[in-house]
């Protein structure tokens, strides 16, 4: 087997292993319940043994633990996430389907906005190192990185939706039944909030790696060869500087998937984040498990993709494996 393929398969294996362990944690968490899920759901009513036993059976809590886990995991793999414990007990997959789409659009838009801006800001700060521009970007990044996303969101609402200007809606109750095009305005504030939360991390990372590369001996060599400054930057420096940034970008997109919790809640945006808050508040375990597993899986997959992408675009890693 070629070594490159071997390493890719190894990474893939590690990703699958991590996912399995994640699912184990998600499953095991329910075992931390005092009593069991049925008791928790029924609360005071659990004194009613008949109802309690029936619910236990419905939740398959009477089976051995290993079987419960494999059953649940098998269901997850087939796309059967169980039934909600709240209300009519709807199918979890149906419940969260629309939310997943909404959140995916939100995250994608935020990524599309933030990544190019981050790369531009990072590269420019590195080139104009210690300039006024660099210092301003640095202070802005520092402040944005320290603020919780919901604080950024509230400040944006205060400025753009209420007190100062009344341009944008403060609540993003996207209706998945209506065409998205007409509802674009609802996405503006959540997308800006998320983008402002991501830009500091990615641009700082890119600045740091660009600065390091610009100090490298091969960049000095390029300059001493008489290579023009733009070419030094675009041809010699950035291709090397971007490599360590890929992982950071991936982690941040994955983190967006988690960061949407507070932002969606703030804007009452009908996505997985707000859904998770509701489910946790209602102690709707199957939904919580499904959403948490989904978020963790996105993290693992994005990381894996970044890993493989890094190997593929960096010659030393790609060809050094022989």
């Amino acid at each position: 087997m070629p070594p490159l393929l071997k390493i890719l398969i190894m990474r893939l294996g590690l990703g699958v292993l991590t996912l399995l362990l994640v699912s184990l944690v998600v499953f095991a968490a329910t075992q931390a319940l005092p009593g069991d899920a049925a008791k928790a759901i029924l609360g005071k009513d659990s004194a009613d043994t008949e109802r309690y036993e029936a619910l236990r059976k419905q939740l398959r809590l009477d089976r051995p633990l290993v079987e419960q886990y494999t059953n649940w995991l098998g269901g997850v793999v087939r796309g059967d996430l169980g039934r909600s414990l709240v209300g009519a007990g709807a199918n979890v997959t149906d419940l969260i389907g629309a939310r997943v789409v909404n959140s995916a659009i939100l995250v994608l838009l935020a990524a599309l906005v933030s990544i190019p801006i981050s790369i531009l800001l990072g590269a420019l700060s590195a080139i104009w190192r210690d300039s006024k521009f660099d210092n301003a970007v640095n202070m802005t990044n520092l402040s944005l990185a320290s603020l919780p996303e919901f604080v950024i969101g509230i400040l944006l609402v205060l400025v753009f939706a209420t007190a100062v200007f009344k341009w944008l809606p403060s609540v993003s109750n996207v209706n998945s039944l209506l065409p998205l095009a007409g509802q674009m305005k609802l996405f503006v504030l959540p997308v800006i909030t998320l983008a402002l939360a991501v830009i500091p991390y990615v641009s700082r990372m890119l600045r740091a790696s660009t600065v390091e590369v610009l100090e490298s001996e091969y960049v000095m060599m390029a300059r001493l060869k008489g290579v023009s400054e733009p070419r030094v930057l675009w041809h010699h420096a950035l291709p090397n500087a971007i490599v360590p940034t890929i992982q950071v970008i991936a982690i941040n997109i994955a983190w967006l998937a988690g960061g949407i919790v507070t932002v969606e809640y703030l804007f009452t945006f009908p996505g997985v984040g707000a859904g998770l808050v509701d489910a946790v508040a209602n102690r709707d375990m199957p939904v919580v498990q499904a959403l948490v597993l989904l978020m963790a899986a996105i993290y693992v997959l994005l990381n894996l993709m970044a890993d493989i992408f890094t190997i593929l675009i960096s010659p030393r890693l790609r060809t050094g494996l022989r």
């Binding site: 490298s216 001996e217 091969y218 000095m220 060599m221 010699h236 291709p239 090397n240 960096s314 010659p315």
Partner: peptide, 11 residues
């Protein structure tokens, strides 16, 4: 140091 002075990303 020739190894550090050649750009690792370029042929």
């Amino acid at each position: 140091d020739a190894s550090a002075s050649l750009n690792p990303a370029l042929r």
